[in-house]
Design a binder for these strands. Structure first.
Ligand code: SF4
Ligand code: SF4
Lengths: 138, 138
DNA sequence: TCTAAACAAGACTTATTTAGTCCTCTTTTT
DNA sequence: AAAAAGAGGACTAAATAAGTCTTGTTTAGA
């Protein structure tokens, strides 16, 4: 049970943008400082933009910036911009398991998923102490 | 972020054995009632046995039974008998990410992982309401 | 003591997912 | 117009998950 590499990248990226809140950063800059492969990062930023977490600016002088203050962006949002928090398939969507109608375990997974989502929603990007990998200063 | 299919099988299997606590069940029986492919289930039961969750009996009249009462077996144990609860690689083991020494996000994952493990440890097999898939009566 | 019913264990195979790259197009400033 | 950005889809390779196959060991009982 693990987040994807891509999701780790997304969080490091948002964390970096949180540090430089107010400034526009270009992909190459984010890539270097957050240690994320450039081309892959471009894709990730598109997802974050569609999710309303970052704002993109096209053309010369373009780049990305956080759409809101760091304290208003939590881990759950960023994670779910990249991948669903499923825990078990049936907890995301009943219809993904044919047994869900009668399964005795199913309701437990629904509860567990909600609790885990709450755990993730509790952490925001103002909570993170700066300095170190993913912040561009280490 | 999802448990493996194998882990879902393990939980259904333990749940079935919990229903028939006190009796020895043979692989074919568990397979039919918990809807788990027979050969694959054999592997899963080996892992559960090594983890001390079930007891195996070899030879004619052999089979499997729960090693303890259903209320003494929780979700976390069963899951971790099959796969680690990582959340993020670095939360399981620092050394798996070269950045962990300086990473500002790393401590957050450590906390999150512990909280998630606590969520899973809260559920035991006496909590599950019988009847339905994974119980052999549906 | 022989046989059949059970589990043990590891090698193997296939399908799916993850982690990325590549190429072409659009937008925007100068 | 040219150059500097991002958008988006097609594609590839590596890793992991899901499951089978084969062979061996243990045990009850005829
Ligand atoms: S818990 Fe029950 S419903 Fe959910 S996936 Fe497993 S079998 Fe299907
Ligand atoms: S959070 Fe930091 S330490 Fe953990 S995996 Fe991501 S980069 Fe590595």
């Amino acid at each position: 049970m693990r987040i994807k590499r891509e999701t780790d990248y997304a969080i490091r990226c948002v964390n970096y943008l949180a540090m430089r809140h107010g400034q526009i950063a270009v992909i190459g800059d984010i890539s270097k400082n957050a240690f994320v492969p450039r081309k892959f990062l471009a894709k990730i930023l598109q997802k974050l933009a569609r999710a309303g977490i970052v704002t993109s600016h096209r053309g010369v002088k373009g780049g990305f910036e956080l759409a809101r203050g760091p304290s208003l962006i939590n881990f759950l949002e960023v994670i779910e911009a990249i991948q669903p928090v499923e825990m078990n398939v049936c907890a995301l969507d009943d219809r993904l398991c044919a047994l869900s109608d009668t399964c005795a375990v199913h309701p437990v997974w629904i509860e567990v998923r909600e609790e885990v989502r709450r755990v993730l929603a509790k952490r925001n990007f103002a909570h993170i102490k700066t300095a170190g990998a993913g912040t561009g200063t280490g």
